[in-house]
Amino acid sequence: MENKIYEFFKELKFNDGEIENLLEIAPAIAETSVNDIVENMSVVVRFGFPADDIGSLIALNPAFLCRNNEDLIIDLIELSKTTDDIEEALKNNPYLI
């Protein structure tokens, strides 16, 4: 795993064991670049999820970080058709993406 990804998760206040956990839940994270991870996070933020709270979303559903960016956008577009508050929707159900 890129050291940058490790440091990145540390900044989100994950400890070593928790980072290890994230990798077990979503092993592809280890092979995903920081750029790709940030890109997926940025998409979620653009649709209205607060950047400050993204760590808690990742803790519950790290797999979205490895998803195909275009498909993630499609899912968020579909979600935004059913709710005008993406933050509330995802905090209540992190698995919507």
């Binding site: 092993p27 592809a28 280890a30 092979e31 995903t32 670049s33 790709d36 490895c66 998803r67 195909n68 275009e70 498909d71």
Partner: peptide, 11 residues
């Protein structure tokens, strides 16, 4: 399927 190359690399 929309997999990324990183995912193919992992699996």
């Amino acid at each position: 399927i929309g997999l990324k190359l990183s995912q193919i690399k992992t699996f």
